[in-house]
C-alpha cells in the first residue's frame, strides 16, 4: 500500500533503527540534565529573591521575564551563531542544554515565588520564633511546601521543555528530529519521520499519563 510504503516501510525501519535508538538516548539524556539543572537553578533563584534585596531581585525578575517572553529557538540561534563572532565557541548540544535549562529555571522560579508569597506569614514566623535562621526556614519549611503544592505545574513545565530538545535539530544536535531528518533526506522516504514521532510517543505518552495521574493525586486541597 502506498501509505504504508511511504510512512512505515519495514526495510527502512530496520536500516535506521540503530541510529534512531542512539538519538533517543541523546534526547533523554539532555532532557534529564535540563530538568535537574533547571529545577535546581529555578529554586535557587526563588530563594535568592526571598532575601528581598532590590539589587538581587531586580536582575532575577528581568531574567525570568526575558526567558519566558523569548522563543527558545531565537535564543539558541543568537547563542549558536552570535557567540563565535566574539570568539566563544560552544558545542551544539551545550547551547541546547543551556538555553532549555535557563528557560525552565525562569518558569520554576516564577512558580516557586508565587507560592512563597502566598504561604501564610505564620510559616516564616513559626520558623524564626524557634530560632531557625532565614536560610534554614527557607530550606526546611518553605521550599518543601512550595515543591509539594506545585508538583503538577512543575511536571508539566518540565515535560513541555523536555520536548523542546527537538529544537536541537536546528543547530545540529544529533537528537531524534535531526537524525530522522537526515535519514529522510538520505532514504527518500517519510518513514524515519514517522519513527521520530513514534519515538516521542514512546517517551512522552507514558509521561503524559503520569502527569495526569499526578495532577489528580496532588491536586492541592485547600
Amino acid at each position: 500500500m502506498d501509505f504504508f510504503d511511504a510512512f512505515l516501510n519495514p526495510e527502512i525501519i530496520a536500516t535506521y533503527l540503530r541510529p534512531m535508538v542512539r538519538a533517543v538516548w541523546v534526547t533523554i539524556w539532555i532532557s534529564v540534565l535540563v530538568v535537574i539543572s533547571g529545577l535546581a537553578l529555578g529554586a535557587l533563584l526563588a530563594g535568592l529573591r526571598a532575601y528581598q534585596k532590590r539589587w538581587l531581585s531586580w536582575p532575577i525578575v528581568l531574567f525570568a521575564d526575558l526567558m519566558r517572553a523569548l522563543p527558545p529557538l531565537v535564543l539558541m540561534l543568537i547563542l549558536f551563531f552570535g557567540l563565535p563572532s566574539i570568539g566563544i565557541i560552544l558545542n551544539d548540544w551545550f547551547v541546547l542544554y543551556l538555553i532549555l535549562t535557563l528557560v525552565l529555571a525562569a518558569f520554576v522560579e516564577e512558580i516557586f515565588w508565587a507560592t512563597m508569597t502566598s504561604l501564610p506569614r505564620g510559616q516564616w514566623e513559626a520558623g524564626a520564633a524557634t530560632g531557625l535562621s532565614f536560610l534554614q526556614v527557607l530550606v526546611h519549611v518553605i521550599f518543601p511546601q512550595a515543591l509539594r503544592m506545585n508538583i503538577p505545574p512543575l511536571v508539566n513545565r518540565s515535560l513541555t521543555i523536555s520536548k523542546m530538545t527537538a529544537y536541537g535539530s536546528v543547530i545540529g544536535v544529533k537528537e531524534i528530529v535531526s537524525v530522522a531528518g537526515s535519514a529522510q533526506a538520505f532514504s527518500g522516504s517519510a518513514t524515519p519521520l514517522t519513527m521520530a514521532a513514534l519515538a516521542y510517543l514512546i517517551i512522552f505518552f507514558p509521561a503524559m499519563l503520569l502527569s495526569r495521574y499526578i495532577e489528580d493525586r496532588f491536586h492541592y486541597e485547600h
Binding site: G122, Q123, A126, A128, A129, L132, V141, P144, Q145
Partner: peptide, 29 residues
C-alpha cells in the same frame, strides 16, 4: 536566632509545618 531559642512562641494560627509529621515539627528546630 540563638536568643529566640530562649523565647518560645505559640501563635493564634498554630502554624505547624503542614508537610511534616507532628514529631518532625517538634524535632526540626
Amino acid at each position: 536566632d540563638r536568643m529566640r531559642l530562649q523565647v518560645g512562641m505559640v501563635f493564634q494560627g498554630f502554624f505547624l509545618y503542614p508537610h511534616l509529621s507532628a514529631l518532625k515539627n517538634v524535632t526540626l528546630a
